[in-house]
């Protein structure tokens, strides 16, 4: 019934003369049943985001006004040079999508790191100590979860002005209660195990028990949560950018690109269409990967 943390290899008999398992085989075993198209697509997005400024075919920020509103290459009047067409300022859509991937991933990674660390530490404290510490932290969690977050975020972004930093802090603060709640639940379960009592008898300090003995027990849960939330954060950043309070222009963001094309849907549908497809494919891949990880690592309590 308990979640086992053992790797698949440990089921093999531990003989000293066991043949060395090649890296490729190990990788294949680890990925058994994984949604491979999703993994491949995410690898592509990650690679593109990392190399963005080396591989963009055109400058994503300044356009060529002579080439404004060009359709994608396969439509009449399209140009192979601007494969997915150009927007009203003559900027290359493909280049902007590539730069937008970088923005989306950085916002997602940074805010999940912030919210994840904050939530995990507070969740550990609440679960381990209980009592008034638990009461205070959980009351905070409940209060924040019952706020209409998008509206509060809108107000905060208007007040502080939208910038990359404000956006990341805001989303991070938005995310922490989810982590705190689930980590607390897991900690309550783990702290009853014998190895925790043994660690205490052996004279481990409280901090050591918390971070060396209890925390590793919830890594799986955290990985699943972070993956599923990455998709959600990308959608959220997109929504805020779409509403005009996200990543400030001229930095290309998928959400603001979609907003830019809305007014000219009839004449230039490609301006909105392609960034949305990129977003859908990325979030879909993250959700498929997250679902697979949840089934594989089997933490019972994770759901949004």
């Amino acid at each position: 019934m308990q979640t086992t943390k053992t790797a698949p290899e440990s089921t093999a008999p531990d003989l000293p003369a066991a043949p060395a398992v090649s890296l490729a085989t190990r990788l294949r075993r680890a990925l058994r049943g994984a949604p491979l198209p999703a993994v491949a697509f995410l690898a592509l997005v990650l690679g593109v985001a990392l190399l963005a400024d080396l591989i963009v075919p055109h400058d994503p920020l300044t356009g060529d006004l002579r080439a404004y509103s060009l359709p994608p290459a396969w439509k009449a009047g399209g140009s192979v040079s601007y494969f997915l067409g150009t927007d009203l300022l003559g900027r290359d859509i493909l280049s902007r999508i590539i730069m937008g991937a970088r923005i989306s991933l950085i916002v997602a990674a940074a805010s999940i790191a912030l919210g994840g660390v904050l939530g995990t530490v507070l969740g550990l404290l609440a679960g381990h100590f209980g009592g008034w510490i638990d009461e205070v932290i959980m009351r905070l969690v409940d209060t924040q979860l019952s706020l209409p977050s998008l509206l509060v975020a809108l107000v905060a972004l208007v007040v502080f002005g939208s910038s990359f930093t404000v956006l990341v802090i805001l989303i991070g603060v938005w995310l922490w209660p989810n982590y705190a709640r689930i980590v607390r639940g897991e900690t309550l379960r783990i702290r009853r195990y014998d190895y925790i009592s043994l660690a205490r008898i052996a004279g481990c300090s409280t901090w050591r028990i918390l971070f060396v003995h209890e925390l590793p027990g919830i890594y799986n849960t955290l990985i699943v949560m972070a993956t599923l939330q990455a998709g959600w954060v990308i959608l959220l950043e997109g929504s805020l950018s779409y509403l005009g309070v996200g990543v400030p222009p001229p930095t290309p963001s998928w959400g603001s690109m979609i907003a830019e094309g809305r007014g000219d849907l009839a004449s230039a549908w490609w301006i909105s269409m392609f960034p949305g497809l990129a977003m859908l494919a990325t979030v879909l891949s993250l959700n498929l990967l997250g679902d697979w990880l949840r089934r594989t690592l089997d933490p019972k309590q994770v759901n949004q």
């Binding site: 997109g238 929504s239 998928w254 979609i258 907003a259 549908w269 949305g276 879909l284």
Partner: peptide, 18 residues
Amino acid sequence: AVVGQSVPAFWLGIVLVY
């Protein structure tokens, strides 16, 4: 279900309008 969960609502709206 999973596609519905992954689609950006503002983009879906625009596609439906188109």
